[in-house]
Design a protein around this nucleic acid. Sequence first.
DNA 1: TGTACATCAGTGAACGCGCGTTCACTGATGTAC
DNA 2: TGTACATCAGTGAACGCGCGTTCACTGATGTAC
Lengths: 200, 200
Amino acid sequence: MMHTPKLQTDVRQEQIIRAALNVVASHGLKGLTMQRVAEQVGLAPSAIYRHFQNKDDVLNSILGLIQGRLLGNVRAVSEEVTDPLERLQSLLQRQVQLLRENPAIPRIVFSEEVYQGHPERQATVYRIIRSYLERLRHIMWQGQQTGHIRPDVTPDTLALMFLGLIQTAVFLWHMSGGAFDMVEHTERAWRVLSQAIRAK
Amino acid sequence: MMHTPKLQTDVRQEQIIRAALNVVASHGLKGLTMQRVAEQVGLAPSAIYRHFQNKDDVLNSILGLIQGRLLGNVRAVSEEVTDPLERLQSLLQRQVQLLRENPAIPRIVFSEEVYQGHPERQATVYRIIRSYLERLRHIMWQGQQTGHIRPDVTPDTLALMFLGLIQTAVFLWHMSGGAFDMVEHTERAWRVLSQAIRAK
DNA sequence: TGTACATCAGTGAACGCGCGTTCACTGATGTAC
DNA sequence: TGTACATCAGTGAACGCGCGTTCACTGATGTAC
């Protein structure tokens, strides 16, 4: 039988990655199987191997997509506003929205399980995180240069505290099965944090 | 063959849980297999079923142990010091040390994978987290009553921000393969946060 | 424009592996008299 | 204190399941002349 029409590899690759993200969103990383991905795309599992070498290859492509989206938000915010504190607030809102629309992202990035026995993958994710933190640090540093942010705390610490807001919000949101209000929490927490880091 | 001497169930149960924590620490949650646990205890895999119903049963017992340790630290700190901000600082130090000595704990609690298809387990972990946050809120609230902590922020937000410090530290520590300095980061971040929440 | 052929994206069946779990068994430990 | 018996914690072999992956195949699409 040949149910499914043929499509070119680049089209299928994107379909497959998106499908994989959906599967992770609904079944978790443990539930990410070639069977489920194929089902969602409407292919036989073996067809996936026409477009990816193996499951690892799929996962690596997912990581690429995630990196693009995370850093895309940073870029967008930098073009949108110039005031450092406003940038951070806008970024916080965007990231929360991004993670809410793509629950698969935190599950993968924070999973601690993506890379058991895959040091290269751990390195890849770590690199993504570090480059994200680097952008945050840069915003903090700029804010210190322009006198918007207090200069007596290292940009490192500020960047990490910012990340902490997002991480906790996402974690509780997930644990509560969606009941926890990420937006409200991050708004309140940001009020406290921004006040704390604003130059007096 | 009967290599291993017989021991009573209560002894074995504790050995098995500790072994399971070790396995998670070294191989991650995905690498937690009955085979590996049995090996570490020095038993045949089938022997574990003399002391636990199944793997789920083992995991639930682990969660009990974790809960005990997390809340134990809160209790210890409450007996140790009375000043709310000192309590929080001491608790932060203790939790960081606890998680550093038991890397299995964050891997399990923050894994998001322990409970795929196990709603009861998700509920259990969520309950642990909530009771932990409840204690934090209580400390915050007390601090507000006694005038140590600024009263214009809800204890909820403060508790969650505190959790964020720990979470980010543990996450980066794990991602970096132990290179990230949790103690230094939490000290610096605590300086910022405690200053922000201290009553003026 | 038609024909011959290569390439390419699809299929289902089959595989091997790792894992959780069961089961009939054995010999040590505990208990009743 | 000794004996008979029940219980209990251990064993290895075997199972079934789910999963990733391979492979020979097929018919559609693209290309050369």
